[in-house]
Design a protein around this nucleic acid. Structure first.
Lengths: 187, 187
DNA sequence: TAGTGCATGTAACACGTTACATGATTCA
DNA sequence: TGAATCATGTAACGTGTTACATGCACTA
């Protein structure tokens, strides 16, 4: 369904960007929920240009370095809007390698399972703390309350969801670790 | 990192299965966190057999229909165990197309955003209800309390995590919808 | 006997990552 | 002047989906 196509259109709808800029965006905030490497972005930009959804102007940076600043066309805006407002089913599978290990927990012994879950909890806690800090920075930057009209609303939604996701994972890991701690070894 | 390889080894560690059986498992419980189509499974089974991690016996079903019952080798068990107990970093990106739309919310008008979020909430609620029912069925089937020693523990972990995941998504959607409802249109 | 499910496989294509390849700019 | 960052592209490979292809078993 070419989601990268829409990710690019959405980014360009907020303003002109180079391919390099997009790569950076995927590494930053947006990266919690979508990402792509430059090797995938550049060919997609070419394709979208050919299809007429975006266009570019070559800009000289410094004295020689060329970069292509892309912007969205009217056709592109229409295409983006159509995707945005379309209802889609919830995906059946959201892949999670750690949960696959959890499903196979019976192939580990108790101490190994405890170590695995404890490691995961510490890493998830760290990520949650990082996201919490990001959210506090955003709230400070945005000043008063963030609402639908705020230019930061999209970013706010992203961060609150990512934080909720990590916190939920931590709660579950903690509950699982408690069950492991309660284990009664067979006599 | 060939995660499908380990998913297959993990499934076979619990008992012999045909390729068809594995496809069914991915459609059922395990499918919340990992899945693969038969077109990907069959070549992987061949590869794992060549590598010596699994082996098969051809069984006749009925009078003619042949099926290959795979089982894990000692080498395969060692390989599985190594993967299971290895600590890995939390992935930077867990892709979520809906969250990409949420990030681009400013390209929609208020009514469109409300409709999109309301649709997603109703679908997520439905999925949460389905998972809750599955969890209750498991608890009933397992009888007394489920612990590390229970053969259902892996399944229990999977279901509780999947349910927590959907419930968390619902809470966030509800909070977002409240913010959209509170919108003060500019005079 | 027709439809659904069981059972296995390959081919073509789409999506994604790693590696290869090059060069300019900025700042310490 | 060396390192990090800006900037763009292609090639090879790995993963994942859809479509093509076939045939048996069960049951309504």
């Amino acid at each position: 369904m070419r989601v990268l196509k829409y990710a690019i259109l959405g980014l360009l709808d907020k303003g002109s960007l180079s391919g390099y800029d997009m790569t950076s965006r995927f590494k930053a905030e947006l990266g919690q929920f979508w990402s792509a490497k430059h090797s995938q972005i550049y060919p997609e930009l070419k394709k979208l240009t050919d299809e007429g959804f975006i266009e570019f102007k070559t800009v000289i940076q410094g004295s020689k370095l060329e970069k292509k600043m892309y912007s969205i066309t009217l056709e592109g805006k229409r295409e983006l809007h159509e995707w945005l407002t379309a209802f889609k089913p919830v995906p059946d599978t959201v892949k999670d390698e750690f949960m696959l290990k959890a499903y196979f927990i019976s192939a580990m012994d108790l101490e190994e399972a405890k170590a695995l879950f404890a490691d995961q909890l510490s890493k998830r806690k760290e990520k949650a703390a990082f996201l919490k800090k990001k959210l506090e920075e955003l709230k400070e930057e945005a000043g008063q309350s963030i609402s639908f009209r705020s230019p930061h609303f999209g970013h706010y939604l992203l961060l609150t969801r990512a934080l909720e996701r990590e916190n939920g994972y931590c709660s579950w890991l903690l509950a699982a670790l408690e069950m492991l701690a309660d284990d009664q070894p067979p006599a």
